[in-house]
């Protein structure tokens, strides 16, 4: 009985979160179209997310590309198909690893910082201060971050794709000895524009999702410094797990 109650209340608060996050995203989106337009804040957020995240994304992509090349090679050798290595690595990266890893790294670097920043603004009444100065805090704080996320995450994904493939090339061609021409040819054969675009589409969605979650958790943080810590952890967990779940759903449905 206790267990059911526990699960029940957990489920209800989960549903509340889902509804709250969606509503929050929707409000931030709608406020894009009412003046004042906060272009400068948007640029500042682009810089914030980009500067914080690009190096980690690049490193993650490089090593993922390299390790993918090894693993795929290992599998392909079993039936003598190692010539397609370039294609398989590029597909894996553009369709899956690029968008997912970039998004998760952005969560870790920039998303968590957003939650902490908005959380501290909530706790110290800065959000209320915006309100009483007749400035809409969602429009001021969340809308620029939302658009920055939807722009920067795809850009980082494109970068991750390139770097990851480069890593795969280094391992495949320079270390495992696959011919440069074959590697490149197979890659061109197998990867279509659609594959790249599917990854980029995913990443736009991930960007919107992770910013919504991270801002929502910060915006409604309560309970002092401890509350900010809790909100940050929750934001990171929800966005990371959410990204993987949505990735699965989108892949099976659309791509």
């Amino acid at each position: 009985m206790r267990l059911f109650q526990f699960l029940g209340s957990g489920f209800i608060s989960f549903l509340q979160d889902v509804g709250g996050i969606f509503l929050f995203f929707w409000k931030a989106l709608i406020f894009t179209f009412t003046p004042p337009f906060r272009f400068r804040l948007f640029l500042k957020q682009v810089e914030f997310i980009g500067v914080r995240s690009w190096l980690v994304v690049a490193l993650t992509a490089l090593f993922s590309g390299m390790v993918t090349a090894y693993q795929v090679h290992h599998a392909l050798v079993k039936f003598g198909g190692q010539s397609v290595l370039g294609g398989v690595v590029a597909l894996t990266l553009t369709r899956e690893l690029g968008p997912v890893l970039s998004a998760i790294m952005v969560v870790a670097r920039a998303g968590s910082a957003m939650t902490a920043e908005l959380g501290s603004m909530r706790i110290t009444e800065q959000i209320d201060a915006l309100k009483i100065m007749a400035v809409n805090p969602i429009q001021y704080l969340v809308t620029p971050r939302l658009w920055a996320g939807m722009l920067v995450v795809p850009l980082l994904t494109a970068m991750a794709d390139l770097i990851g493939i480069a890593g795969g090339y280094v391992i495949g061609v320079l270390v495992l000895g696959i011919d440069h021409g074959i590697f490149m040819a197979k890659m061109k054969d197998m990867v279509e524009l659609v594959d790249i675009m599917s990854g980029i589409c995913k990443s736009i969605f991930f960007g919107a999702f992770l910013v919504s979650v991270c801002c929502y958790k910060g915006y409604y943080a309560r309970g002092g410094a401890e509350g900010i810590g809790r909100a940050t952890t929750e934001a990171v967990v929800i966005s990371s797990v959410g990204i993987l779940i949505f990735d699965y759903i989108m892949t099976t449905l659309f791509f």
Binding site: M121, Q126, M133
Partner: peptide
């Protein structure tokens, strides 16, 4: 709110 200002107890500076 443009007509009524509030000074917060803790200041609430940005």
């Amino acid at each position: 709110r443009k007509k009524i200002g509030l000074l917060f107890q803790e200041g609430a500076l940005f």
